[in-house]
């Protein structure tokens, strides 16, 4: 049994954990590239990353400076918008705080420790961070990546595979799929700011694994197939959807409201598993747009399924008592 509100918090904790991890990884990849590039070129590429992460509006509003590390700082340490690593870590912590009585103590403590470390970097101030040549933000990225791995490890090793775990894992994998599709979009086109295949693989933590299969200079099409359809790579959308479907299947046994999300996950998984992806990727923009919106709708369905049914008419028909399944004697 899990409270609807707790299920929702765990779903979002999972989503924000994945988001913090992915942004930190992308920034880490980009930072290495910045050091080897001309300032203008580096800035263009960073802007493209901002766009891929869906943060254009926040970027404009934040009036980010022109220094070479300003974009990185915006993505890592700027808590004025919800898309930075520091904000995502804070959201993980706040969501886990709501459920701290039901999750392993270590999971809460890791999230809390990571939050404290990220806040201390934030307190240095943007100007001072820029003066260090991005050093502070680089350290924050390293801290965040270690912290996210640690959280992920505790989650996998210590959490009971109950409904709470199912929601948290579903949240992580859905967010991962959504971000993968968005990042793939940033490899389309011909401009100098378009990310090449290796960069896309590095952003999605798949470079090493893909190199064995795709070689050193994979084209976008091959990368897209790898990241969308690989059956054994935990970073591929197909793999993620397979797991989400399993988790939703577990949940649907007890919680009928999850059934819609489960059907949608199954349909989308089948689309990727059995669809003619080569043909579909003939029109890559259209296919990615479809996948992006289908994943967003699926995430929304999962969220909706946690919202408790409060219609009192349902009370008499379906209330349950854990353990014996009987209702209260009248």
């Amino acid at each position: 049994m899990i409270l609807a509100r707790h299920a929702d918090s765990l779903l979002w904790a999972g989503r924000y954990l994945e988001r913090a991890d992915t942004i930190a990884r992308c920034v880490s990849v980009e930072t290495n590239a910045v050091m080897h590039r001309q300032a203008t070129e580096a800035r263009l590429a960073s802007r493209r990353l901002v766009q891929a992460l869906g943060l254009q509006d926040e970027f404009v509003a934040a009036q980010v400076g022109t220094g070479p590390y300003a974009v990185m700082d915006f993505l890592v340490s700027d808590d004025s918008h919800p898309g930075s690593v520091v904000s995502a870590v804070q959201a993980v912590r706040e969501n886990l705080r709501i459920v701290r009585d039901r999750i392993p103590v270590e999971l809460w403590e890791e999230a809390n420790s990571l939050h404290i470390l990220m806040q201390s970097a934030k307190s240095v101030g943007a100007a001072a961070r820029e003066q260090t040549g991005g050093e502070v933000s680089r350290m924050s990225v390293i801290t965040a990546r270690r912290g996210c791995r640690s959280l992920s490890g505790v989650m996998t090793e210590s959490m009971s595979r109950d409904e709470g775990y199912a929601f948290m894992e579903a949240g992580r994998l859905l967010e991962r799929s959504i971000l993968t599709v968005e990042l793939l979009k940033s490899g389309l086109g011909t401009g100098s700011d378009v990310f090449d295949g290796n960069r896309l693989l590095a952003f999605t933590h798949s470079l090493q694994a893909a190199r064995r299969e795709l070689g050193h200079s994979p084209q976008w099409h091959a990368v897209a197939k790898f990241l969308l359809q690989h059956s054994q790579m935990p970073r591929s959308v197909l793999w993620c959807l397979g797991r989400v479907e399993l988790r939703l299947q577990d949940l649907a046994a007890a919680a009928g409201a999850v059934a819609t999300a489960r059907r949608r996950a199954g349909a989308l998984r089948a689309h990727l598993e059995y669809g003619e992806l080569d043909e579909l990727l003939g029109q890559p923009e259209a296919e990615l747009a479809y996948l992006g919106s289908a994943l967003a709708e699926l995430a929304a369905d999962v969220h909706t399924s946690t919202v408790a049914r409060s219609s009192l008419a349902e009370v008499h028909a379906q209330f349950v008592r854990p353990g014996d399944g009987r209702g209260r004697p009248q």
Binding site: H6, A255, L312, Q318
Partner: peptide, 29 residues
């Protein structure tokens, strides 16, 4: 955590015909 019971807020509970229920994903308990 120490007792192994749910920690709830007001909106997690609903009363119908003088019975208090918990809003869970499985329905009202």
């Amino acid at each position: 955590r120490e007792m192994g019971v749910e920690l709830v807020e007001g909106p997690d509970l609903v009363v119908d015909e003088h019975v208090v229920y918990l809003r869970t994903i499985e329905g009202l308990v």
